[in-house]
């Protein structure tokens, strides 16, 4: 099953929030929807979930307009919140029933998830008696109990301790291998890099870059070298303004063109005491800062 947003436009009053947003997420894969605060991620998700309609554009499932009565969507909103004063099992059943489950099916699915997440003992408790991390696990159940085709997780790891984060990672991996479309939205780039095969970065309501994460990295201009050396001052003197230093103490040498790579590498190894030398590959963090940040994009 493939999910595709095609040319979505959305304005709130005078303010244009999304402009020609298109991306495609595949079943059995995780998709990362990135962007700074206010870039249009939540609006895209809400349009995808039919909370409000787009001004124009389409949401397609396998090329056909999405039928919300047939396509189940599970959603973990960034703004977490259930009924703080109500019994956990009551509200979980309520949300599962709203998603179209029968009461019986809802109870057995919820009990499975409660035990899967180690929360069975809180079944009859009021939500506000739980810690923040545990409340988040309860919230996760509302997104998964009805066995949706599309799972949307907005900042799923925020507020979780390392043990719970591990548990959630396992759950996410299960969902992916069950063939579901998992849509991630997060500012924690390491998790996106770990799970997502494809990403889209939104900036001011426009898709700044999208596609396969490995391809994006590979397509990145290979015109920088990372150098670790015992003689950094000498190297810096030699390369002048083309050389800069990273936080970890390595040097980055910008080449005038990728073709120069071999010549520069030879020059470095012959003249200096070099520990390590490699072509610079950007991390997702670098890509994010470059495409979503305020600084003008480098050529």
């Amino acid at each position: 099953m493939d999910l595709e947003l095609v040319n979505i436009e959305k304005s709130f009053g005078e303010k244009k929030v999304l402009t020609g947003v298109s991306f495609k997420a595949k079943g059995g894969k995780a998709f990362g929807l990135l962007g700074r605060n206010g870039a249009g991620k939540t609006t895209s998700i809400r349009i995808l979930m039919n909370v409000f309609p787009a001004n124009s554009g389409e949401v397609l499932i396998d090329g056909r307009p999405i039928d919300y009565s047939k396509t189940g969507i599970g959603y973990l909103p960034e703004e977490r919140g259930l009924y703080p004063k109500k019994i956990i099992i009551d509200q979980l059943i309520y949300f599962a029933e709203l998603k179209g489950m029968t009461r019986k099916a809802a109870i057995s699915a919820i009990d499975y998830w409660l035990s899967r997440l180690g929360m069975t003992e809180y079944r009859e408790k009021r939500l506000d008696t739980l810690s923040k991390g545990n409340q988040q696990k309860i919230q996760l159940i509302t997104a998964l109990a009805h066995d949706p085709d599309i799972v949307i997780l907005d900042e799923p790891f925020s507020g979780l301790d390392p043990v719970n984060a591990m548990l959630l990672k396992d759950v996410v991996k299960e969902q992916i291998s069950a063939g579901k479309i998992v849509l991630f939205s997060s500012h924690q780039m390491s998790y996106i890099e770990e799970f997502c095969d494809s990403i889209a970065i939104l900036k001011n309501g426009v898709v700044a870059i999208k596609g396969d994460l490995h391809e994006i990295k590979r397509d990145y201009p290979r015109d920088r070298l990372v150098v670790r050396t015992q003689m950094p001052d000498a190297v810096r003197r030699d390369f002048g303004s083309a050389c800069s230093e990273t936080e970890s103490g390595s040097l980055i040498i910008k080449l005038t063109s990728p073709d120069e790579k071999k010549a520069v590498m030879t020059r470095l190894t012959e003249n200096y005491d070099i520990d390590e030398i490699k072509v610079f590959e950007p991390s997702l963090n670098d890509i994010f800062v470059e495409y979503a940040g305020d600084a003008p994009k480098e050529a």
Partner: peptide, 15 residues
Amino acid sequence: TEKSSRAMELLITSA
């Protein structure tokens, strides 16, 4: 209350 507790985020996407 539903709005301020953000239960609305989930309700509005469910019903």
